[in-house]
Design a binder for these strands. Structure first.
Lengths: 247, 247
DNA sequence: AGACTTTTAAATGTCAGACAAATAAAAATT
DNA sequence: AATTTTTATTTGTCTGACATTTAAAAGTCT
C-alpha cells in the first residue's frame, strides 16, 4: 500500500489512537475509498513499526466509528466501510441522547430546537408525503388512542409519528439530521405524565397535522406544530412546577 | 462493581464488540454515570471471563465514540466521559461529510436540507444574535471580498459565516444539529469555481442577511436564504452542465 | 510542622508468541 | 461437471512479560 500514513512515537498520544487517526484521515480525504481493503494487521504493524495488538486496537477504534468492517479468512481483512444512512442515523440518535442528558440540556432548549427543525420540514413534507407515510402517521394516532397505553409507549409512538412526518420530506439528509432532534427528546418526554386529557389534545393536534399533510397545506402543518410545541412545553412546565411544590 | 453486564460467547459477534455494547448500554441507560470509574481492565477481564487484551479492544471501541476516557497511573482507569458539545460537533461533521460523499448524495438534496434547516434558525437568530456574531459574519464578508482568495478559502469562509448565523439562534442543540448540515456541504461546494461575479452576488446576499439580522427582520433573512439557495444551486448546475459538455 | 524529594503501588500501554476460528480458493475426489 | 476436502491466509483470542505513567504514601530536610 502506497498510502502515506505516519505516526510519531514521541507524541504524548497513544500509538493506537495515532494509527487510527492516520487511517481515518486517509479515509476522509479520499485516499482510501469505500470497499478498499487495508493491509493485513501484520503488514500494518510492519509499516507503522508497532506490534500487532496495537494495530488491532487502532482498528477497533475505526470499527467503532463504522469507518471499517473486518472479516476473517483467506481473503479477509479490514475494509473501508460505506457509512450507511442507517448507521449514521443510529449514531446520531445515541450521540444526541447522550449529549442532552450529560449536559443537562433543559426541556425548553431541546424542544425549541426540535420543533424549529421539524417545522423546516413542513413545506417539503406537505409536497412529497406518500400514502405510506400518511398511513404510518394514522396508525400511530390509532395506537395513541388505545386505552391502557403506558406513557413510555405513548412517547415512543409520538416519536414514530414525527419520524414519519420528517420522512415525508423525501430528503434522506433531512431525515438523518432530524433523527437526533426527534429521538433525543424521548428521555425528556418520558418525564411527563400524560393524562387522558393531555393525550386527547396531542392526538387532536396530530390528527390535524396528518390531515393538513394529506391536503398539502404546509401552513396548517406549521401552525399546528407551533401549537404542539407550546402545549408540550406547558406539560413539561407543569411537571417542573409540581416538582418544585413537592420539595 | 454491581452493574449487571453480560455477554454471550456463543453469539457470532466479536467478544470485544459485545463487551463494548454492554458497557455502552450501561452508560446510555444511566447505570454508569458521567465521571464514574469503570473497573480496571484486569477486573473487567475477570467479570466478563475474557482476556485482558479483549477488554482493551472493547475499551478502544468506547473511547473512539468518546464514551470513555482512559488515564494511566495509580488512580488511573477508564472513566465515563461527559460527551461535550465540542466532541459531538466534531463527530457530527465527520459523519455528515462521509455520509454525503460515500452515498453520492447529490448537490440538490444536500443543499435543500441545509437551507431548510438553516432557515429554521432565522427567527431565533434574528431575535438572539449578539454583536459578536454579527461581527464574525461581517469579518467573513470582509474576507470573502479579498482579492486572490482561493475557492477553497472562499468556501471555508462561507461555512464560517453560516455557522455564526446558526449560532445566533442561541440554542446549542440547534448549533450541534446544524453543524453537519452546514459543514458536510463543503466538499460539494468545493467543486464550484466561483467567478468574481458569483462571489459578488454571494457576498451581496450575505450582506443582506447580516443587515436583516441586525435589524431583527427574520422574514428578510429567510427570503434571502432562499435566494442564496437558488443561486448556489444554479452555480452547481452550471458546473454539472459544463461537465456534461466536456464529456 | 511544613515543604520537598523519593519510593511505592496500581493502573494503562505495548510487546512477543502461540493457538483458534473463519473463510475463500485451490486441489482432490466422485 | 459437481461435490468434497485440503490449504493458506486472515482475524480473533489468549498467556505472559515488561514499560510507562501517575497519584499517594513514605521519607528526608529545614
Amino acid at each position: 500500500m502506497s498510502k502515506i500514513m505516519k505516526i510519531d512515537p514521541q507524541k504524548p498520544v497513544d500509538l493506537s489512537a495515532q494509527i487510527a487517526q492516520a487511517i481515518r484521515d486517509a479515509i476522509v480525504s479520499g485516499q482510501l475509498i469505500v470497499d478498499e481493503r487495508l493491509p493485513s494487521e501484520a503488514e500494518l504493524a510492519d509499516q507503522f513499526q508497532v506490534s500487532r495488538p496495537t494495530v488491532r486496537e487502532a482498528l477497533k477504534r475505526l470499527a467503532a466509528q463504522s469507518l471499517i468492517r473486518t472479516q476473517r479468512g483467506a481473503t479477509g481483512g479490514a475494509f473501508v466501510n460505506r457509512l450507511s444512512f442507517e448507521d449514521a442515523y443510529s449514531q446520531q440518535i445515541t450521540t444526541s441522547t447522550l449529549l442532552l442528558s450529560m449536559n443537562a440540556v433543559d426541556f425548553d432548549t431541546a424542544c425549541e430546537a426540535r420543533y424549529a427543525l421539524e417545522r423546516a420540514c413542513a413545506p417539503l413534507s406537505a409536497q412529497r408525503r406518500t400514502a405510506d407515510q400518511l398511513a404510518t402517521m394514522r396508525a400511530e394516532i390509532f395506537r395513541q388512542e388505545q386505552p391502557g397505553l403506558t406513557d413510555e409507549a405513548f412517547c415512543a409512538s409520538d416519536v414514530a409519528f414525527h419520524r414519519a412526518l420528517v420522512d415525508g420530506a423525501g430528503n434522506p439528509v433531512l431525515s438523518y439530521q432530524l433523527a437526533g432532534a426527534v429521538e433525543a427528546m424521548q428521555p425528556l418526554m418520558n418525564m411527563i405524565t400524560f393524562t387522558a386529557r393531555s393525550r386527547e389534545e396531542i392526538i387532536s393536534l396530530h390528527s390535524r397535522i396528518v390531515d393538513a399533510l394529506q391536503e398539502r397545506e404546509p401552513d396548517i402543518v406549521d401552525e399546528t406544530l407551533v401549537k404542539l410545541e407550546n402545549y408540550t412545553r406547558k406539560l413539561a412546565q407543569d411537571v417542573a412546577d409540581r416538582r418544585k411544590k413537592a420539595v
